Amino acid sequence: MTAPIDGTCDPRFAPVRDAFAANFTERGEPGGAIALMVDGRLVCDLWGGWRDAAREKPWARETLVNFFSVGKAFTSLVALRLVERGALDLDAPAHRLWPEFGAHGKEAITLRHMLSHQAGLPAIRTDLPDGAMFNWSAMTAALAATPPWWEPGTAHGYHVNTFGYLVGELVRRASGRTVGQLLRDEVAGPLGADVHIGLPSTEHPRAAEFLWPSVLPERPEGDLPDGILMKWNTYWNPPGISGAGWVNSAEWRAAEIPSTNGHGTARGIARVYSALAAGGSIGGIDILSADMLAAAVEEQSFGPDRVLERESRFALGFQLPQAERPLGPNAQAFGHFGAGGSLGFCDPAARVAFGYVTNDMGPRWQNPRNKALLAAIYESLGG
């Protein structure tokens, strides 16, 4: 059955529409959506395919989906807003706000270390039961009790699932509110952006089924060397922390797991990035000051990643372009990818903001679907 595609696209951006259509016909896309904004104007708003595994429910304009690590950037925005108002300090020891955290070699860890994946805490060492990721206090207590896997500040490794608990606990202690509440009240709400960390139950009927692989890896037997244990626990301690077995459940959608379970539409993602592309403010709505935004996108970490075992490059919570994974041709671009290939980014030089969501666990690193979309955007722009 041919995947239905709907929406609008400025004729200038016909290559983007063609690339999106080819994702379904040539690159195995089951369902997804894209939104492209230029100078704050929505020039491409397309959705297509199916929102369920049975391919009976077409993707609709308001369908939203789990966009995984795209939410790390939104978590960072919330924290950076608190830095801007003086409630958080990038370089103060985290234990000043979170006393229990200042033990086991973590006395010098700062918010900057956390945002740039240098904290040395990509995984919890003590085994936790499946479902523990829904218990915020249990997760933060376990992190407070975990010694760093490397000396903080001396290396970086992608904090795949712990990032949101670390940053989120400082946000909670500094503001009295959660990441999801602040995102809703101070960013998504004012912008009218359909993005959520902690999806209200009233919105669950709009959520697409995410097609998680049915075959999951088995834990290596015996006592694991430290490096192997760290990588395993990063993704699988507790067992469902990456979403396995839970991703389409009401519990998962409603919870706040800021690294991993953000939900939204492509249009919502692009709307947030449209403010960042414009210097932190759009339509009279201030998201970050120009100075804070400039600091937020300065490189903090670049080189061998201890978790990913390849190079990675981070600013303060945002991913920065690198040769193996560019965000178009301009060095000023920044954003964040998510599992399955979802993406939110902006390119201030080109005045572009973009969101892409999918309900399929495609390639995480070199994803042909988002690569084709990125190429088509800049083809349409003429460079």
Results as ranks from 00 to 15, higher is better:
Arg177Cys: 11
Ala3Pro: 09
Asn261Lys: 06
Asn261Gly: 07
Ser289Met: 12
Gly284Thr: 13
Arg271Met: 11
Phe210Pro: 03
Ala92Val: 09
Met133Arg: 07
Pro147Phe: 06
Leu374Lys: 00
Arg85Gln: 15
Val357Leu: 00
Lys106Glu: 01
Ser116Asn: 05
Gly222Tyr: 15
Gly303Ser: 08
Ala331Thr: 13
Met361Tyr: 09
Leu293Pro: 02
Ala375Pro: 01
Asn66Tyr: 01
Gly164Arg: 04
Thr162His: 04
Ala123Met: 07
Trp50Val: 11
Lys231Pro: 00
Glu29Pro: 00
Phe74Thr: 00
Ala277Gly: 09
Tyr165Ser: 07
Gly86Tyr: 10
Asn359Met: 05
Asn23Ile: 02
Gly198Arg: 03
Tyr378Pro: 04
Ser301Leu: 12
Ser116Arg: 08
Val38Ala: 01
Asp286Gln: 14
Ala278Glu: 06
Gly157Ala: 08
Gly153Thr: 09
Glu298Gln: 15
Gly328Lys: 03
Ala244Arg: 02
His104Leu: 12
Ala277Phe: 04
Asp10Trp: 04
Ala208Pro: 08
Gly335Arg: 01
Arg51Ile: 10
Gly355Lys: 01
Ile124Gln: 03
Gly86Ser: 14
Val65Thr: 14
Ala255Leu: 00
Trp50Cys: 08
Tyr235Arg: 12
Glu256Lys: 01
Ala33Glu: 01
Ala350Gln: 14
Ser289Lys: 11
His196Gln: 05
Val83Gln: 05
Asp223Ala: 15
Gly243Leu: 06
Glu56Asp: 07
Glu379Thr: 09
Pro147Gln: 06
Pro190Leu: 11
Ala208Arg: 05
Glu107Val: 07
Trp149Asp: 04
Gly120Val: 05
Arg96Trp: 11
Gly28Ala: 12
Lys72Asp: 07
Ser69Met: 04
Asp52Gly: 11
Trp149Arg: 00
Leu111Ser: 05
Tyr158Asp: 07
Glu298Asp: 07
Asp127Val: 12
Glu56Leu: 09
Ala254Met: 06
Gly264Ser: 03
Thr154Leu: 13
Tyr158Ile: 05
Gly28Asp: 11
Ala14Glu: 07
Phe67Ser: 08
His95Thr: 02
Tyr356Phe: 15
Ala119Ile: 08
His117Asn: 12
Ala79Ser: 03
Arg27Met: 13
Pro329Trp: 00
Ala92Trp: 10
Trp252Phe: 15
Phe302Ser: 12
Pro329Gly: 00
Glu298Val: 13
Cys346Gln: 06
Asp39Tyr: 11
Asn359Leu: 01
Arg306Pro: 08
Leu343Ile: 05
Leu216Glu: 13
Thr234Pro: 15
Leu64Ser: 09
